[in-house]
Nucleic acid binder design. Sequence first.
DNA 1: TCCTATTTGTCTATATTTAACAAATCATTT
DNA 2: AAATGATTTGTTAAATATAGACAAATAGGA
Lengths: 98, 98
Amino acid sequence: MNRFGELIRTKREEKEMLLRHLSAELDIDTALLSKIERGEKTAKREYITLLAKIFELDYNQLFSLWLADQIYKLIENEDLALEALKIAKKELKQSVIK
Amino acid sequence: MNRFGELIRTKREEKEMLLRHLSAELDIDTALLSKIERGEKTAKREYITLLAKIFELDYNQLFSLWLADQIYKLIENEDLALEALKIAKKELKQSVIK
DNA sequence: TCCTATTTGTCTATATTTAACAAATCATTT
DNA sequence: AAATGATTTGTTAAATATAGACAAATAGGA
């Protein structure tokens, strides 16, 4: 799962930008951007802000995808992933109350 | 949130074991075990197996708590935590199908 | 084939994390 | 209150993981 990278790639291609163009705007290596789009590396938080602006995306939505990718990476190979998600969600809701 | 550590501490106290005793069984520093129980440090996976045996706990249940703690740590300070959890869960279910 | 875009592989710098050790604090008993 | 034992805290070293740079390989057209 790599919803974040896939969205960036889609948007970039829509705008007919090359990796080279976008990576220049982010001030990172083209190879690194390629890896971010394919989910091989994780984008820094500061890039999220920039990317939201460049592609006129809602920051919160983009950030949610990014965060979901992090969660997914943590649990993807675990049998008990769903159970753990359930517990974490429960605890999260508890903590909101407090 | 530190469900894992709290459970271990409860069980240890039920058995009237000292940190010193349990840390010896796990072959780790007493201070480290103290930190694990209080959620300041994360237990290695191999300790989960050992702890399940020592306290006669169901491994899967104990592991789920441990994994939930990891998820929680990743998202605890995020406004969009719940949204991200939802996305991750959706993707996880998708991936099971495939 | 040549040219351009992208991907891959390797290596380095940096950040994070585990874990050890020593010292401080806390709790209990005498 | 001093002494003893248990736990916690702080600091530091070592191990691990990650971002990112660079060079080379690959893919895809004209």
